[in-house]
Every structure is written in structure tokens, then in C-alpha cells.
Design a protein around this nucleic acid. Structure first.
Lengths: 173, 173
DNA sequence: TATTGTTATACTCTATAACTATA
DNA sequence: TATAGTTATAGAGTATAACAATA
């Protein structure tokens, strides 16, 4: 390798190049130092969230449910008789953006909009029979493939502590 | 630990909420039941991440730095002499998307691209003097306003445990 | 007048293909 | 041929204004 006097370092190809190095004084410098970044709450939180969503999508591939869609089905099941505005706002979804999402779920016959008799402006949301069945299967997949993985990684008690701390941040930060 | 009391969105617009309620025995039902959602890792992770980023932006309002921009400055400072591809890929940013981001930082005179003498295709990244000064101020703001808030909320040891668990998820999930 | 669901729209993030200049 | 930086572009996700039906 041409050791240049001017520039710091060139793009050191792959591991093989650095593997054969004999000058033991310097660190390999092959991988970048994250430094303080690895202690930044926001950074590690974002990276963890991306990994978890990615895993969620893989686990749910057979049902074709995104995390957001799963949360809608869960909330509708738990709160029958609520309208779009209530479900959406609870999930932090803006009403205009909730329309296309519901169109999707309704077109797949997972949930249905029912015009309220009390207030004919409102659409009451309910799960269809297929929606209930799919949600039941989704819950099993999440429990056995997704959340179980977290238990393997952290252990049951740590997992509970993690959820509790994240909830606290979500609610009080 | 139990899940802390939620103050979710409290979408209590007007007294209209108590519309059809006649028997006083039932719970208000004004707020929706989150149910299993509050135990879903992905859900609570995402909500926490949004809150943390939101707080970060408020803390950094005077410096106009986003979490992503802050992470770039930190990484460039810690790894001088690296090129765009190395910095971007370490942060999980795709090279095409990194261009506009660097244009922004460079236009604000926070960092600079220097054509490498070894490989004239590469742009070596460095912080300008102003960039170093701004980053130093940013670090102080993050430590005193942002991360300190996490300590207040969870305590020092819990905070460390949280970061450790999130790192583990980010790296091994 | 206010609210529900909706449309239209815009802005940010993210993702892929292809170009250029170097190697 | 392959790689670094770049352009163009497309797709999600998210944000606001405004309109029709209804209250």
C-alpha cells in the first residue's frame, strides 16, 4: 500500500487488507468508532425501533399486516362501537391519513365501516369475522415469533422492565 | 412495575363526550382501552421514539439541528478522514440521500467535503471550526436539557439499563 | 356554527436505477 | 470492470386546508 504523506487514509477495501497488518500500535480503523453516539438515547431508540419493525414485518409476512394495521385491528377489537376519529386519534394517526388505511383493511374484508344511527356523520368501526380470525392468528404469530424473540434476548423480567420504561417515556417525556 | 397512568391525547373537546351515558355505574368510556397494545414492544418503542425526537428538536431549536444532523456531526468528529460512503453507511443512511444532507450542513459551514488526494473520487469529510463549535454547544444542550430529562424520569441506573437493552436489540434482534 | 369523513396537497424519509468521473 | 458521488424519481409517512353531509 502506498503510504501517502498527504492524505489521512484511503478507502481500505475489506478485512483482508487490514488483517495482514503488522503495526500493532494503531487500532484497525476498519470499522468506524460510534463514540458518544452509542450512548445517545434517540440514536439507539431509533435503531432499535427499525430492527423491531423489520422483524415484525417478517413475522407477519404470511398475514401481510404492518405494525400500524395490527394496532388498528387490536384497538378496534378492544373498543367496539368507536368511530374513525376516536380510533385514529388514540393511535396518533391523523384523520385524513386514516382514510386510505381503512380503505385497505376494508377492501381485504378485515374490518367494516358502519354508519352510526345516533350520528349519521360517524362511521362505527367493527372487525369482520375474517378480521377477527386474522387478528387471532396475528396475535399468535406475534407472541410466538416476535415477542418471544425479545424474551430470548433479554429475559422475561428485563423485557417487562424495558416495556415499562418505554411506556413511561412515551407518556411522560 | 405497572404501566404508568396515561394522559395519552386526552381529546376531551367539549362536554359532548358524555352523550349517551345514562347509568352512572359504568366507567366513563371517554378514553379508549389500549388493551394488549400497551404491551406491544413495537408500539411502545415507536411512541417513545417519537417523544424523544420531539424533545430533542425542542432542546436543539436554538442550533437548528435534527437528530440525524447531530449524529452526522458526532460521527465525523469522531472519525476524521472518512468519506461520504463510510459515514453514511455507518448511520444507515443511503448514499443518495446523504448528498442533500451534506449540502445542508456544508451550506451552513458546519462541515466540508475535501477531495481525497489518494482517490480523487472520494470526498473526505471534516468539521469546520464553526462545526466544531456548534457541535460542542449541541453536546452541552443534549446533556443538560435532553439526556438529563431521562435521568430525572428513570434514574441513572435505569437509564443505563435502558440504553444497554436498546443497543442489544439494535445489534442482535 | 361545529364536527365527521373525505379529498387534495405538500413535505419529509426512504429506496432504486442510472449517470460522471475516477480507479 | 468497479467504485464514489450524484441526479432523478418513486414510494411511504405525516401534515394542513377545505369541502359535503350532518349535527
Amino acid at each position: 500500500m502506498t503510504v501517502s504523506k498527504t492524505a489521512e487514509k484511503s478507502s481500505e477495501k475489506s478485512g483482508e487488507a487490514a488483517k495482514g497488518r503488522k503495526d500493532a500500535g494503531e487500532p484497525l480503523a476498519e470499522t468506524l468508532q460510534l463514540g458518544e453516539l452509542s450512548e445517545q438515547l434517540g440514536y439507539v431508540l431509533k435503531r432499535a425501533q427499525l430492527k423491531v419493525f423489520e422483524n415484525f414485518l417478517r413475522c407477519m409476512a404470511s398475514l401481510q399486516l404492518t405494525p400500524a394495521q395490527f394496532s388498528v385491528l387490536l384497538l378496534v377489537e378492544k373498543n367496539p362501537g368507536r368511530n374513525q376519529t376516536e380510533i385514529a386519534s388514540t393511535l396518533g394517526i391523523l384523520r385524513p391519513n386514516f382514510v386510505a388505511m381503512l380503505d385497505n383493511l376494508e377492501s381485504r374484508d378485515l374490518c367494516a365501516r358502519i354508519r352510526s344511527t345516533n350520528d349519521r356523520r360517524s362511521h362505527i368501526l367493527v372487525l369482520t369475522d375474517k378480521g377477527k380470525a386474522v387478528l387471532a392468528r396475528a396475535k399468535k404469530l406475534v407472541a410466538t415469533k416476535h415477542e418471544a424473540r425479545l424474551n430470548d434476548l433479554l429475559g422475561q423480567s428485563n423485557r417487562e422492565a424495558l416495556i415499562a420504561m418505554l411506556s413511561k417515556i412515551a407518556n411522560e417525556f
